[in-house]
Design a protein around this nucleic acid. Structure first.
Lengths: 194, 194
DNA sequence: GGCTGACGGTTAGGCTCCTAACGAAAAGCG
DNA sequence: CGCTTTTCGTTAGGAGCCTAACCGTCAGCC
């Protein structure tokens, strides 16, 4: 599992107390932040257990989904919208789409190829390039794996009503936008006010 | 950075489309789930950049905070509430509090001790045990690091109003509870309906 | 044509996490 | 007291991610 997070989060009263000493500490922001990371971790843990039960990891799953979309352009799943779908198939494109480095993608493809889920094909036009394809075995694996995966995702979100889910997505979207801006900003610790 | 996540999330319409083929796929659940992981990742990325700027990691930070609470019991920060604070100081206790294995904690303490932030002391009563203490240098580091850290956390959450933060925490709490239950359940992929 | 620069995939080495197993020390029990 | 079981910290080995550097190939430019 990913990050490392304190098992017991500080209580809100403790944050209030600590804010007296650190004026930079915004108690409600810290509380929301800790809950966000914590919940994301816990939710990921559920599907990660499901992943490892089937002998794959999040990274490998992402690659398979991207390649699956490429193999079956009819399927709307697997990444961005089908309309602007450039069907990533080279390691560099896959790395870009999955948000990892090319080096990491090499390793992922290595193990996927070793397990027979994908295969590398040399590009006839550009001898630098490779084309990665999903094998029949890889496609079969996804067909068997996905129902359980979707079921698990549904189970996690079951406590939320439809309107609550909408609200959650809206609030998360605000944070995500903000965080993306902060992440791309080159500045030091302090953040621009805008 | 931790997980690996698709850079471009599938759009809601695509999920709707895919649900026709996979009846197990709950579109709104999948959308909320993807946003949750994605946002958590992005938010973590912001503070992780701050961490690496100061030469530490999330794991090392957690250990320092836990030890800091132990060194200054007056401080309300650093972990669970101050009331039920057993002041973790042995590697096993730290591992339990931080939610990692003892083996991982050994590695974290190794590097922290190498950098002079903590030191190991043998327990006079039980020769198996060690006591880990924050050094003056470690405390000084935290005093210098925390304001910027809190500032970054505040910056991430700035787009949300106080009431929105409350709502977010409430919704996340529901998911967290559910995910924790699913994680501790021994069953296979499918989840109990309750 | 030949040189230089950019790009594609890979390799090497590091960090953090994990599981499995170890040796030393304590605790339970005859 | 001896024996087993538990607990503590550590070590060994693996997976996934990263950055930095590499080599082969393509493209621009004289």
């Amino acid at each position: 599992m990913p990050h490392l997070l304190l098992k017991d989060l500080p209580r809100y009263e403790c944050l209030l107390e600590a804010a007296k000493e650190f004026p930079e500490l915004d108690p409600s922001a810290a509380e929301a932040f800790l809950h966000l990371l914590r919940t994301g971790d816990e939710a990921f843990g559920v599907i990660d257990r499901n992943f490892s039960r089937h002998g794959i990891s999040q990274g490998r799953f992402s690659v398979l989904m991207l390649l699956w979309r490429c193999a079956n352009p009819d399927h709307p799943l697997g990444g961005a919208g089908a309309a602007d779908c450039p069907a990533p198939s080279t390691p560099a494109e896959l790395a870009e789409a999955a948000g990892v480095t090319r080096a990491t993608m090499t390793g992922l493809i290595d193990t996927l190829e070793r397990d027979g889920f994908v295969k590398r094909l040399p590009d006839p036009d550009d001898r630098r390039m490779m084309s990665v394809r999903l094998t029949a075995r890889g496609g079969k694996f996804l067909q068997q794996f996905l129902p359980g995966h979707f079921k698990a995702v549904g189970a996690i979100m079951r406590p939320l009503s439809e309107s609550e889910r909408k609200t959650l997505v809206r609030l998360l979207g605000k944070i995500q936008l903000r965080a993306a801006a902060l992440n791309s900003a080159p500045g030091p610790a302090a953040a621009p006010a805008g």
